[in-house]
């Protein structure tokens, strides 16, 4: 059971209160009509899927209901940081550098 700190509720809660939302920082093209199929396909379907630190979206679905972002090591499943949606991806210190 992951214990996840919701950056809005400022409390650590069990994973079952949350819903995983896939890769974070995937920005929808600002002008959709100016983008070709390949770029849309990249936006919709292609993912980093990293073995190591992943930035991912979660939603505190059974709490405040808000989306936030999280840095998690996908090998150890340790959570390195959580931060509000819209905030830039934090840079990690030595512990998160792997």
């Amino acid at each position: 059971m992951l214990l996840i700190r919701c950056p809005y509720c400022a409390t650590e809660r069990p994973e079952i209160e949350f819903r995983h939302g896939g890769q974070a920082h995937v920005a929808r093209p600002a002008d959709p009509s100016a983008v070709d199929d390949a770029a849309w396909s990249e936006y919709l379907f292609f993912r980093d899927n990293p073995k190591g630190v992943a930035a991912e979206r979660w939603r505190h679905v059974h709490g405040c209901g808000r989306f936030f972002n999280c840095l998690r090591d996908t090998v150890s499943d340790r959570i390195l940081a959580t931060y509000p949606a819209g905030a830039p991806r934090p840079t990690l210190g030595a512990e998160g550098a792997r």
Binding site: M1, G22, N49, E56, T74
Partner: peptide, 13 residues
């Protein structure tokens, strides 16, 4: 399981 992972194990729940 509910989230992506390479941990080769799963959650109890």
């Amino acid at each position: 399981d509910a989230y992506t992972s390479y941990s080769q194990r799963g959650a109890l729940h």
